[in-house]
Simulated scan of single mutants.
Amino acid sequence: MAKAKIPGKRPQVAAKPQVAVAGQTVAVEPSAPKKRTSIPQFFSQVRAEGRKIVWPTRKETWITSVMVFIMVAIATLFFWIVDFVLAWASQLVLGIGA
């Protein structure tokens, strides 16, 4: 419920929020509203962040690709074996297809 305004009386300033951390009370400053960024400034920031990107070398890309293909082959072999064993076990238990 909102408080009624009384003419001639100044509103009281709210106390700073406090947080208890490990037995100590710490005052927390309210964050200031963020300033809006203009469109040209936004694009200049995007270009500045783009310059920070470190691209992998051709050798790093090759090694990473080979490792991915090896892991895919291992995962394929593993799941094929698991599928084969489970199919064999289900046929053994159910007695179909034997």
Rank of each mutant, 00 (worst) to 15 (best):
I70Y: 03
V19I: 11
R51G: 13
Q18H: 06
E60S: 03
K59R: 13
V46H: 01
F42C: 03
E60Y: 00
V68P: 01
K16F: 11
P40S: 01
P30K: 15
R36F: 12
F69N: 04
F69K: 08
S44V: 00
W55F: 10
F69L: 10
V26R: 05
Q45V: 01
T64R: 14
P40E: 01
F42Q: 06
K34A: 15
Q45N: 09
R51T: 09
P17A: 10
T61P: 00
I63E: 12
R36M: 09
W55K: 07
I70A: 11
V72R: 03
K16W: 03
A15M: 04
A20P: 00
R36K: 15
F69T: 00
T57F: 07
R58P: 02
M71Y: 02
P17D: 12
V26T: 05
Q18G: 06
E49W: 08
V66Y: 10
I53Y: 11
V72C: 07
I70C: 13
T64A: 15
Q45S: 11
S38K: 10
F42A: 03
A48T: 06
M67S: 15
Q41M: 01
V26S: 04
A48G: 00
F42L: 08
A22N: 05
Q18Y: 01
A32C: 07
I70W: 02
Q18F: 04
V28R: 15
F69R: 05
P17T: 05
K34Y: 12
T64C: 09
I39K: 12
K59Q: 15
W55Q: 13
A48L: 01
R36N: 12
I39E: 14
S38W: 04
S38Q: 14
A14I: 07
S65C: 10
Q41V: 05
P56V: 02
M67P: 07
A15E: 14
P33C: 09
A14P: 01
P33H: 10
R36P: 07
V54N: 11
Q24S: 09
A27P: 15
V72N: 01
R58F: 14
R47C: 10
P33I: 11
V54G: 08
P17Q: 06
A14L: 10
E60H: 04
P40C: 04
T37D: 05
E29R: 11
R36V: 12
S31C: 02
A48I: 00
K34M: 13
S31A: 09
V26A: 08
R58E: 14
S44K: 03
P40T: 03
F43I: 14
K59F: 08
E60I: 00
E49R: 14
P40V: 03
Q45G: 12
P30I: 15
